[in-house]
Amino acid sequence: MLTAEQLMAAQKANVETLFGLTSKAFEGVEKLVELNVTATKAALAEAAETTQSMLNVKDAQELLALQAALFQPLAEKTAAYSRHLYDISTSTGAEFTKAVEGQFSDVQKKFLAVVDNAAKNAPAGSETAVAVFKSAVAAGNNALESVQKAVKQATDVAEANFNAVASQAVNAAKTTTKAKR
């Protein structure tokens, strides 16, 4: 059976985990705000520069050249922004996953200790029931590990696809800019 000290220790660990995860969430939000402030400042400076350049345009040909020159850096900056956004969300998610997996591992160990303790104190003749229960717990753990591996593989595939799409978008912008010149 669980003692009051064990319950208090578990509660304390849960509160510490909650505050740790909250701290990580705020770090992610801080990074996101910093990214957006930086991007906004850069966009405002570029808008002012672009407006000034457009005011100095003498003819339509010069205007088309200016538009073409602006398109490629915009695509590259959008891809870079998306990459930073993805990195922030991935690192924050990884911290949450790490914490949850650590907590789950601890809970799993404690649960197995309770099951083992109950098995030792089980009445005679219940060995088969205890073995079936332990087998079910092991099967559940194996299923969970399989799901975690599948999620990791899916995340890796999604990241590879994201990188490929971002690269193609930048290359397409470069090609379009060259074609307009």
Rank of each mutant, 00 (worst) to 15 (best):
K120N: 14
L85F: 10
D116F: 00
V147E: 12
A118P: 06
S53T: 09
A68E: 05
Q103G: 01
E145C: 01
G102V: 00
G102W: 01
A60H: 02
S82H: 06
G125Q: 06
T97P: 02
V115N: 01
L70I: 08
S126N: 10
A143L: 15
L63A: 12
V57F: 13
V137K: 10
T155V: 08
V132A: 09
N36A: 07
N36S: 10
G140T: 00
S135I: 05
S146T: 00
F111W: 15
Y86L: 06
E127G: 11
A60S: 03
V37E: 15
F71E: 12
F96M: 01
N141H: 15
L63G: 10
K109C: 05
G125N: 12
S105A: 09
G140N: 03
V100N: 07
E76T: 03
S82I: 01
A131L: 03
N56T: 01
A136Y: 13
A138N: 10
A94N: 07
T50I: 05
T50S: 10
S53D: 14
R83A: 06
N56Y: 04
A43S: 14
K110C: 01
S91A: 02
E76R: 10
V107E: 13
S126D: 07
A136W: 10
G125W: 06
N141W: 04
A69T: 03
K98S: 11
N36V: 02
L112F: 07
S105V: 00
A65C: 05
E76K: 11
L63M: 13
E62P: 15
L44I: 07
I88W: 11
R83Y: 04
A60L: 04
Y81A: 08
Q153K: 04
A138Y: 05
T50A: 12
A131Q: 02
V37N: 14
A122K: 11
V147K: 12
A136D: 13
A45D: 11
A39N: 11
P73Y: 04
V137A: 13
D116S: 02
A80V: 08
Y81F: 15
N121S: 15
E101I: 00
A138F: 05
N117E: 15
T40C: 07
G125P: 07
L55C: 12
P123M: 08
E49G: 04
K120I: 02
G102A: 10
K110Q: 07
E46V: 06
M54K: 08
F111N: 14
A154H: 09
H84T: 03
K152Y: 02
A45W: 04
A118Y: 08
K109A: 11
F111Y: 15
S146F: 01
A39W: 03
E49A: 09
V107I: 13
L85Y: 06
Q67G: 08
A99P: 00
T92R: 07
E46L: 13
A42C: 03
